[in-house]
């Protein structure tokens, strides 16, 4: 079984309220020194068999049509994933 990992980040010019909430919580727990947090998303898509170029191409298309909104998010990775689960 193969796996494709797709990752997104909010575009730099778009406000990231979730990242800001996390940034606010870090020092309360003693994690000081972090000056910015941006929160992205990771999807793991599984296929029967190998991750071929065709599978990757299909994942790339899915990444920009459904999985992400190109208005607010950048796709930062569409790669054959490691087996970790």
């Amino acid at each position: 079984m193969g796996r494709v990992v797709v990752e997104f980040m909010p575009k730099p010019e778009i406000l990231d309220p979730q990242g800001q909430a996390v940034l606010g919580a870090l020092p309360r727990l003693g994690f000081t020194g972090f000056t910015s947090v941006r929160q992205g998303k990771r999807f793991e898509l599984e296929v029967d068999g190998e991750v071929t170029d065709q599978v990757l191409a299909s994942a790339r298309e899915a990444a920009t049509t459904l999985l992400s909104n190109p208005v607010i998010e950048d796709v930062v990775a569409v790669v054959a994933g490691e087996g970790a689960r």
């Binding site: 778009i14 406000l15 309220p17 979730q18 800001q20 909104n69 208005v71 607010i72």
Partner: peptide, 17 residues
């Protein structure tokens, strides 16, 4: 309508969360 690209832009979480 924004997701369907009939209108520009997007709606995200309120800034005050």
């Amino acid at each position: 309508l924004c997701e369907a690209h009939l209108l520009p832009g997007a709606l995200i979480r309120n800034d005050h969360r």
